[in-house]
Design a protein around this nucleic acid. Structure first.
Lengths: 214, 214
DNA sequence: TTCTGGTTCGAACGTTCGTTCGAATTTTAG
DNA sequence: CTAAAATTCGAACGAACGTTCGAACCAGAA
């Protein structure tokens, strides 16, 4: 029956995601996945064409669910700042509930090749462009003499959010909602407000050559 | 002669860092490095004990230089905000001048094992604690009713900064100094200012179970 | 020149990898 | 019950991996 096939595939994907997150895609062997799932080595290939397809399915399923949920929640919303709040909360709460898959999605971006890479990469691009568009709208609600560069802001936001797999423990004291509201406040205030210019010009600027070895 | 030995080792490390950054540590073979350096496979082992030591030397040398320079520049500085500016500018300008090495330092953190891992990890911890300490000092110069959580702020800062290997092109239009001043402004304003609380409470909060598969 | 110690490398070692194949087993449909 | 289809797996494949070894090479000191 198709149902039990799908369930077992999902189980394999979840287990593989956990191991990929633990020890990275390239140093995980099909034998590791076989051992962890109690499915024989050859048996795994009944559920996927290759190890690379496993990685793809994890990334694509995971991302698909983020996008689907985001579209639902953004529907009908007009206020740019509310949109941004939804975007951040959506991203972080999904991340926290699916740390392994999201770590794999963030950390193993370049482990796919060819069409599979292109497919995931394109979806990420659209996601990034959506964030950038929301930020542009947010920025236009304000007037600032020295607005933050939109590209820097967009990737700073993703950096803040995606870095959490390096430190955040969903089981720990800090709740996801607190994490989200802290990050939203941190980002939004920084993005909109202009206050500390005095300090910036005092920064010593190093010539890059200082850093080169020889 | 010892001089030429060191020079060749440095050359091998730079080349290895470039390839590790391109296709990740675990999917780079010693044969790849041999090909790129024109040093025979066996010859490489005259300059390192193992592939893992290559990775360690890249990470440790790189981090050592960041720390050394940072200590010099922080010496005698008292103002917390100036300290933070120096910290960010130091980190980013080194990152931009050594993208490969820094990508390897950020991205292959868990690829080392045992003592080598512990050694690099400990230095990173101290670096993180230093940043956290500076942020605490910055925060104490202000009084805020709802300050940003210090842990969140610290890792958000590192997320913003370390994420740049995913998008920033040091050869492109955006200069390092602009990148640094934008990120400093973005972070510092967000960290210090309290303004958008109204929007935060309006955020819908999803139950984590929504995100789980089954 | 001869000797010495650092440097280089071709060839091979044993291991592990992703994947395949054919047969055995279980499940489903008629 | 029977036959077809779906599922499972032991065993093996060739390829690629990190590393080693012994010999060859080359510099500078005597």
């Amino acid at each position: 029956m198709a149902k039990s096939y799908d369930q077992k595939l999902e189980f394999i994907l979840r287990t593989a995601a956990r191991i990929f997150a633990e020890k990275s895609y390239h140093s995980t062997s099909m034998r590791d996945i076989s051992r962890a799932t109690n499915v024989s080595l050859a048996g795994l290939y009944h559920y996927c064409k290759s190890k690379e397809e496993l990685l793809f399915l994890i990334q694509d399923n995971c991302f698909g669910r983020v996008l689907e949920r985001l579209e639902q929640r953004l529907e009908g919303v007009e206020d740019p700042i509310t949109k941004l709040g939804i975007f951040i909360e959506n991203h972080l709460s999904f991340f926290a509930a699916n740390m392994s898959e999201m770590k794999v999605l963030s950390h193993e971006a370049e482990s796919l090749r060819g069409d599979l890479y292109t497919h995931v990469s394109t979806r990420k691009d659209n996601y990034t462009k959506l964030a950038r568009q929301i930020l542009r709208e947010v920025q236009q609600t304000q007037e600032s003499k020295e607005p933050i560069d939109l590209t820097v802001a967009t990737y700073a936001l993703f950096g803040m959010m995606n870095w959490i797999y390096n430190w955040y423990d969903p089981q720990g004291k800090l709740k996801v909602s607190d994490l989200a509201s802290n990050l939203l406040k941190l980002f939004l205030n920084g993005f909109l407000v202009n206050r500390v210019d005095g300090h910036l010009h005092a920064l010593p600027t190093e010539s890059p050559s200082v850093w080169r070895l020889s």
